[in-house]
Nucleic acid binder design. Structure first.
Lengths: 334, 334
DNA sequence: TTGTACGCGTTATCAA
DNA sequence: TTGATAACGCGTACAA
């Protein structure tokens, strides 16, 4: 037994009456071992409860099977869903997720950490994404995959929702519904994604020569929506049309905060008085309590793209930049 | 440079003109290095972009700083929130989370995996919890922390919400509201937690000699609530009192599914026709669109308990079993 | 205070 | 097919 009390290959070898290498070979795919020896080794291993030590294995092969996932706000439904899909998919490919929460942390520490583990790749989720960390990792030639965080002239795989198009679709839909007094609402999180969505929305409006309010604030996404509704709809009575008649929220949670506050706190009817459209299509958007019209971005597509980028290990060619399509989901708030 | 292209301590030593152990000592807390040497080493390390290889370090010290988190359904708000808090707290303690998604996976593979990594502890979240995995880990003397999954006569730290008391509180509250035609609803997930909550609820009702319907089915938690409402409230028109007048759902999501379907699909008024109470107090419960009365269990408390159990490293004494208190949150559905 | 030498547990190489 | 032996990159007695 080793110092830490774990069973080692040597222990198994001794019990089985064979050499250490025989044990190693038994547990290494496609290696030469006679059935007889293999049987003896397996029996001994089972008896001792032996497991290959991955630390030693990875050190020796200098090839870890870990993938770091760096992100924040894992409680947000869209992120949580992505995490669920991603962790399941990775394990299916024999990879394991090292989950690093970048919220409110010392970035330098996190940076050192992620590089110390010699992971096969670092996956950076959108929110709270330390630019400095990304730079340093790339300098260390650490393989990286950026989700909704593309950076030009950077040697990293990148997966991006077509945020701009999504914003345009939202604008199009509100315009088609005859809305003209519009507002775009973003949370204080202020991620690149949210900025691009808003930009696409404004761009489409600009083409029609229609003006647009902008509202940015709030801590969480949901709370931002609540605050926006209180601020924008102030003074509007139940029967009085408010100063705006259509809102595009950069995330579904923000849209839901706006929607709920408008309906239950401000007494404003949706969509009669004001139309609301969100972005992401999280499960809660489809609930009958909200029935939110929104722009869908497919999480499974993102996961598939991650696996693709992960797969093209050494081939330098291949699609290093993947776009995730979006689509309009018509429900009852426009 | 090493085979994989990473910088090693030897590289740094050569550049700095010192021995390899000097490098090692520079990066080891409380070790003897003269300021002069330390400076030279740090300069060389910075120039080369050197990072300690954690695989080798952990192997050498036979002490990994990884903690495995085994769970499923990370998209559920309560689980997602726990994951967010937990990953942040662990990193604060110098520990790192290896996230293993146990859903729809080969359990044997996952079992081998978690043991191969020689993690400092395995944290098992409630849902989809493979009993076999737990047994095997314990047999391998792997340190474990079970959340909402206590097993008698088992050598593992365990953290449990006071589910039974929560169920009793729910019953008490419905009874106090004058409800007598009651039903308890659980999802098909059928976790130990949900069973205990239902049991506590029924226990309290039993003391009053009041009968109770039971409804168990559905795939997801939310969907289970929807199905329950459709099934239990069938035939009740808007103005007609249904056959039941009070429902306890074992999770908030189930409660919300029931609530929404009752209101928007069945035309049943809540709480006038039927009262609804949930469990967990997820953020969505507080939304004005739901305003769900529920039983709160505190995720931060759970995280604190995990850290406590993790801390009592070698001391065999100490609280190996921690109970998380619950409380009633009165809102508008009872 | 520094350098040498050994061990952590594994895989890979090379004779036998 | 098997068993010594050499890495893998690191921490750390031990000696200098």
């Amino acid at each position: 037994m080793s110092k830490a009390g774990f069973v080692t290959a040597a222990d198994v070898a001794k019990l089985a009456g064979v050499s250490r290498s025989a044990v190693s070979r038994t547990f290494t795919p496609d290696a030469y071992v006679s059935p007889a020896v293999r049987e003896k080794v397996l029996r001994a291993a089972d008896e001792l409860g032996y497991r290959v030590n991955r630390l030693a294995k990875d050190l020796q092969t200098s090839r870890s099977s870990m993938v770091a996932i760096v992100g924040a706000r894992f409680y947000e439904p869209y992120v949580a869903g992505l995490l669920d899909d991603l962790s399941a998919a990775l394990i299916g490919k024999g990879l394991h997720a090292l989950l690093l929460n970048a919220s409110s942390q010392d970035m330098t520490a996190l940076l050192n950490l992620v590089l110390e583990y010699r992971v096969r790749a670092v996956i950076v989720l959108s929110g709270a994404p330390p630019r400095e960390l990304i730079d340093q990792c790339l300098r260390a030639r650490q393989r990286m995959i950026l989700i909704n965080r593309h950076m030009e002239d950077v040697e990293a795989g990148s997966i991006e929702t077509d945020d701009r198009m999504g914003g345009r679709l939202a604008a199009e839909h509100l315009l088609a519904a005859g809305r003209r007094k519009l507002c775009v609402v973003r949370s204080g999180a202020d991620t690149p994604s949210q900025r691009r969505r808003a930009a696409g929305f404004l761009e489409r409006l600009d083409e029609e020569g229609i003006a647009c309010e902008r509202w940015v604030a709030g801590r969480g996404n949901y709370e931002a929506g609540c605050e926006a509704a209180r601020s924008l709809l102030r003074g509007s009575g139940p029967a009085i049309a408010p100063d705006i008649d259509g809102v595009f929220a950069a995330t579904d949670r923000t849209a839901l905060g706006f929607l709920n506050t408008a309906r239950f706190e401000m007494g404003v009817s949706v969509p009669q008085d004001v139309a609301v459209i969100g972005f992401d299509d999280i499960p809660e958007a489809a609930w009958s309590s909200h029935n939110l019209t929104t722009i869908r971005q497919s999480a499974p597509d993102v996961v598939a793209a991650v696996l693709t980028l992960l797969a093209e290990d050494d081939e330098d060619a291949g699609p290093r930049r993947v776009a995730i399509p979006v689509s309009l989901v018509e429900r009852g708030t426009v």
